[in-house]
Design a protein around this nucleic acid. Structure first.
Length: 520
RNA sequence: GCCGCCUUAGCUCAGUUGGUUAGAGCGCUAGAAUGUGGAUCUAGAGGUCCCCCGUUCAAUUCGGGGAGGCGGUACCA
């Protein structure tokens, strides 16, 4: 213990909520994003990219205050003391881009983009401070048809990724409907309104009983922490419960008519409720707008063959965002997954969006209608993993050409080149070649299908040794004795130097991979 | 933010009723075996026992505070 003389070592550690990405994760993600992109392109969307950093004020309502800028976003000051922030989503930067290039952009403007976004908040299981989103938006399209297209595109994307019909659903709702109902409750306080919406949004997570607690006085979670409720009266809660229960109805038609009757009215209410809901909404058209938009969307997608097993009206779909002004929609996965504790859990939402007619106005002063959605790439990835839709299409590790004789490096390099030209991953051992066993060990640990051995003997005879490491690994299970192991050289065979590429190509692992590539 | 649990070797974790050299397995390095992976055997390297303060002759161990990790919940543009 008397050795504090050493300089303090730097601790290797990750910033919390940030992660290194593994080769298999990167490959699987790239593949998945390629599939999403194909669908988006088919729908006529073009890619566009904006930078990670934006001026903080461009991102939204977050303005830096003195020394602790915004919670929630990563911010820093530029040389000129202006506040910059890492983007926290892809929508706000798009709004900035559109506003800035307003004259050049042809509306309706259909674009998609993907990339990392950053949130400075506490990470949780499956939630990180840097994560990837994939967005598509139509700017300058006021009609319901644009929203309908977004929903259909989401549905198509799910299926392109191999998620079967019935394993997902696109849920649609309209904020105008909910807002109107809340207005009849005379809720003027924005905070209370938000807590009501949030409570409704949690129906999936907690169930109706807990949602009612959240709408009323509050709820205690399992760690003993208490969440304050929205403070609605029992009467109002009952009313909302009825509205939410529309989802259990069979036909979309029934759901729509329940929604149509959802607005509390003096006339239609039973005794006791009369007079309580003094609806000033009566003359307000917001509710009926929202309701008929839902009806229109429903008709549009239905006519295109998207029935309720793919796109359905759902009164519990809220999307807690403040900037949505009309339609909201989200892609929800319906299958169960087993979590670390062995419990069955529904996977839930993997992406969502809606209509945001006010975002661009912040820059231009002119209202520009827009609708779009965002896919949570890593969440969707782990969902696909659960579905086994990610065929472990692992790329085979490279062939390792061993270095037996340092003066022959040019020859080894030539073998590598030949293999590469044939489309086979290959590399010459670049470590210290002194210990030959090390080279094979390296090849083994990398999972190489084969190692190539050529020393002076082989060069003299014009041959090379090919060691099939996969076959060898199998054989090793039955060999206990090291002498036998060494002398048998399982999986090893020799061939003429000029047959090298042909023989390697015949190895099962390589052959399979080549065929797969051909198929593409 | 609030609530709960946790922190000892690169990793997973024992352990010390407060006492002199703090352990295991895995991994790593080297050798047995210098042109053959695996298995086996031998040896070695690797520790501020999360940090600070307090109690004590003595703290990795006890007390207080802090930080970090995990989980729940809230927030989530």
């Amino acid at each position: 213990m008397a050795k504090n003389k050493k300089p303090n070592k730097v601790k290797a550690r990750l910033v919390r909520g940030f992660n290194d990405r593994s080769p298999s994760d990167i490959r699987a993600t790239n593949k998945m994003m390629g599939q999403i992109q194909e669908v988006f392109e088919l729908y006529g969307f073009d890619p566009i990219e904006t930078p990670f950093l934006e001026y903080t004020d461009a991102l939204g309502k977050f303005l830096p205050d003195s020394d602790r800028p915004n919670e929630g976003v990563f911010s820093l000051q530029d040389e000129d003391e202006q506040w910059l922030s890492l983007r926290y989503d892809l929508t706000a930067p798009l709004a900035r881009h559109v506003a800035q290039n307003f004259n050049e952009i042809t509306m309706p403007y259909r674009t998609y983009r993907s990339g990392f976004v950053f949130r400075n908040e506490k990470p949780g299981p499956g939630r990180f401070r840097q994560f990837m989103q994939f967005d598509a938006d139509i700017v300058g399209a006021p009609g319901v048809a644009a929203d309908a297209e977004m929903c259909m595109m989401m549905a198509d994307t799910m299926e392109a990724l191999g998620i079967k019909r019935g394993d997902y659903v696109i849920r649609v709702n309209n904020r105008k409907v909910l807002d109107s109902i809340l207005q009849t409750f005379h809720i003027s306080d924005e905070g209370q309104k938000l807590s009501v919406l949030r409570a409704l949004d949690k129906l999936d997570k907690f169930g109706i009983a807990d949602v009612k607690l959240l709408l009323g006085d509050g709820r205690k979670d399992e760690s003993g922490d208490f969440t304050k409720g929205a403070g609605l009266s029992p009467l109002e809660i009952n009313y909302l419960e009825q509205y939410l229960s529309a989802n259990t109805l069979q036909s979309q038609h029934e759901v729509l008519s329940t929604v149509a009757n959802a607005l509390p009215r003096k006339t239609s209410d039973k005794e006791g409720i009369e007079g309580f809901f003094e609806s000033q909404m009566y003359e307000d058209s917001t509710f009926s707008e929202g309701e008929s938009e839902l009806e229109e969307l429903q008709a549009l997608v239905y006519d295109n063959g998207y029935e309720k097993d793919r796109i359905k009206i759902d009164t519990t779909c809220v999307r807690g965002l403040e900037y949505y002004t009309g339609m909201v929609y989200e892609a929800k996965l319906l299958f169960d997954v087993t979590n670390e504790k062995g419990q069955k859990v529904q996977f839930g939402s993997v992406g969502g969006g809606g209509r945001y007619d006010g975002l661009i106005k912040r820059f231009t002063g002119q209202a520009v209608p827009a609708t779009g959605f965002s896919i949570g790439v890593s969440r969707l990835m782990s969902a696909l993993k659960n579905l086994d839709r990610l065929e472990a299409q692992e790329m085979p590790a490279p062939i390792i050409v061993c270095v037996m004789d340092k003066s022959r490096i040019a020859d080894y390099q030539k073998m590598v080149s030949e293999l590469r030209n044939a489309g086979i991953r290959a590399e010459m051992y670049q470590g210290n070649p002194k210990n030959f066993g090390k080279q094979l060990q390296y090849a083994d640990r990398r999972g190489s299908p084969a190692a190539i051995i050529a020393g002076s003997d082989e060069f003299e005879q014009g041959i090379v040794q090919i060691k099939d490491l996969i076959v060898g690994k199998e054989a090793s299970k039955n060999i206990e004795d090291n002498e036998q192991w060494k002398s048998e050289r399982p999986g090893q065979f020799e061939c003429k130097r000029d047959e090298l590429v042909a023989k390697i190509s015949e190895l099962p692992a390589i052959k399979k991979w080549q065929e797969k590539r051909q198929a593409k």
